[in-house]
């Protein structure tokens, strides 16, 4: 078997608390090939922290430790901050939750997308502009020349998220982390954005880590699913095998999904503090 694209072993994240350090991620491990991996879990399960740890984005006072963090043969833990910047964006990128907050409010969309390209490649101005226009075209934005001159507050949420995707994919990375990319969007545009991510990932032969709290959505857009609870991976499943889940927490999550032919009066509520034995 070939070496996986990304190997993560025993990720631990700790924050200082008023009564000593609080560990919030307890030894998460996984391998990622050129595939679509979903990470699901409820709020506070550590799925976003896991995503951000891969890019070494967490700053003091968070303490991040891993036994092994290898990407494409590079030991990310051994890199200096400057070397890490060459990985960020160019090799591993991330789409965040809400374009209202994740796009710079005082920079035009064109400038922001161009910047993502310019920090990694030294290209002439006209070439940058051509690439930005082509990228906006790829994320199905009509009239790219007009949109490039707009500010983020002048576009809709769905369009903002497509701009975000364009910005993160323009340097042609190998891995895209999508951290709840649709939870801030209207239901009607959620599918559009996810279809777009899917097309781009598959089309460019990239790897995707889709972080979400929505089981069905992850099952639809991923090949493999990790279920996280309280900072641990409690179950790993093929996306098609969700119904065959064995772990009580996963079963609990699935049972809480409402159905069309519903006869239940009250949906079951998860006991969030329950500890499951590994």
């Amino acid at each position: 078997m070939t070496e996986p694209l990304l190997q993560l072993r025993n990720l631990r994240v700790t924050f200082p608390g008023p009564r000593g350090p609080v560990q919030v991620v307890h030894g998460v491990s996984f391998d990622l090939g050129r595939e679509r991996l979903g990470i699901v879990g409820e709020s506070g399960s550590g799925k976003s922290l896991t995503g951000r740890s891969l890019l070494r984005l967490l700053k003091h006072p968070a303490k991040v430790e891993t036994d092994r963090l290898i990407f494409d043969g590079i030991d990310l833990n051994a890199l200096s901050e400057k070397q890490m910047r060459n990985i960020r964006g160019a090799r591993i990128s991330m789409v965040m939750q809400d374009p209202k907050f994740s796009l710079n409010p005082v920079m035009t969309i064109g400038t922001q997308i161009a910047e993502a390209l310019r920090v990694h490649e030294n290209l002439p101005r006209t070439e940058v502009k051509t690439r930005v226009r082509a990228m906006l075209d790829q994320v199905r934005i009509d009239d790219p020349d007009r949109v490039m001159k707009l500010y983020p507050h002048e576009v809709s949420g769905g369009m903002g998220q497509r701009v975000m995707i364009a910005m993160m994919l323009i340097p042609q990375p190998d891995v895209l982390i999508a951290d709840e990319p649709t939870s801030a969007l209207d239901v009607s545009v959620q599918a559009q954005v996810l279809d777009l991510i899917d097309t781009m990932i598959v089309g460019n032969g990239m790897a995707l880590i889709l972080i979400s709290h929505d089981l069905e959505l992850v099952a639809r857009y991923c090949d493999r699913v990790l279920v996280m609870h309280r900072g641990r991976v409690v179950e790993e499943l093929e996306a098609g095998q969700l119904h065959a889940a064995t772990h009580p927490y996963t079963k609990g999550l699935l049972a809480a999904v409402p159905r069309m032919d519903e006869t239940r009066k009250v949906l079951p509520v998860m006991d969030r503090d329950m500890e499951y034995d590994q």
């Binding site: 984005l57 910047r85 964006g89 809400d98 993502a116 920090v119 910005m167």
Partner: peptide, 23 residues
Amino acid sequence: EFVTTARVKGVSERAVIWKHAFY
């Protein structure tokens, strides 16, 4: 969040501070 976005893009810390946060 947009400051994190800038870091994700691989922007240098100086540009993150002076361009993205200061603007």
